[in-house]
Design a protein around this nucleic acid. Structure first.
Lengths: 166, 166
DNA sequence: AGTGAAACGACCGTAGA
DNA sequence: TCTACGGTCGTTTCACT
């Protein structure tokens, strides 16, 4: 199957210029993504309108997303895996092609024994095998892969430096 | 420094019993975590009150979280890394100890060349080194680690099977 | 567990400093 | 970029099914 070209990603459309208030808002929304603008306004000491503008700007520019996150292993009875990828040649190009695969939802470039990590979510083993063989390993300049099938999610937090708990 | 005992994690307090409507709600909130209950109600064909109960149940039982997610490399100018961990002995016990470290925000148990992966977010290289040496590698039964320092986030989606785009 | 109605609170334009 | 204000829509509680 053909992956839809490269509509895919690009994090942060216009990254620059986050002030202290922006960071405060992000921190608050990392604890509760549905916090009302009124509550946020009280917390940061601005008017509701000002906070609304800032939050919407952060969302529009993809500085942050506000979304539901789950454990796919529980919610979907899915097969999930991390794939370490070694690349020969242009890293960015391979990263873009990996990112274009619909079942890949997280891609990072890194140093170390792998050049890329891709986290994938699949329905079952057959689907996983298909993504590996016909998706990732079929990409040019991918020289080696190692697949780490998930057994259990032990921790997942987004408010850095504070516990998951409410 | 002492990590705060083990208040930490545990995903999904009472996992079972997700029906089709729950999954629909999760899917919708994976696209927009701030969608109103009224809009969700229209989409799934229930009343607002019913939808509110369901969403709050999913949140209360930790089946999902609704949070802001960002690229820490951009927002915080942070050092971020994935650490592959090899373990001798009880996996769960080590996983719990790794999860208890405040700068570790994602921990998975897996098959393959590593038993555990831990994603960490640090302020700078010194902080990273501290978490590695005095945090992860100081845990009993951790026999080997490999650190993959993040260079760039290429893709980050939570609505499985659909693009990041707004 | 789901519905409906009425009071309350949040949200989002527009206008203006 | 922020504040102020008013109309509209979403949320909440309650009694009921």
């Amino acid at each position: 199957m053909s992956a839809g070209s490269e509509d895919t990603v690009a994090q942060a459309r216009s990254p620059r210029g986050l002030d202290a208030t922006d960071r405060e808002l992000i921190a608050l929304l990392q604890r509760d993504g549905r916090a009302s603008f009124a509550a946020l306004a009280k917390a940061v000491g601005l008017s509701e309108g000002a906070v609304r503008q800032r939050v919407q700007r952060l969302l529009r520019e993809d500085t942050m997303q506000i979304v539901a996150v789950t454990d796919p292993l529980i919610v979907d009875l899915a097969r999930q895996a991390m794939v370490g990828i070694k690349v020969n040649g242009d890293l960015h190009q391979v990263a873009d092609q990996v990112s274009a695969l619909p079942d890949v939802h997280y891609v990072i470039l890194c140093t170390g024994g792998f050049d890329l990590f891709a986290e994938i979510i699949c329905r079952d083993d057959e689907h996983l095998l298909d993504v590996l063989n016909n998706g990732i390993r079929a990409i040019e300049n991918v020289t080696d892969t190692e697949t780490f099938v998930y057994l259990k999610l032990a921790k997942q937090t987004y408010a850095w430096g504070s516990p998951t708990e409410f």
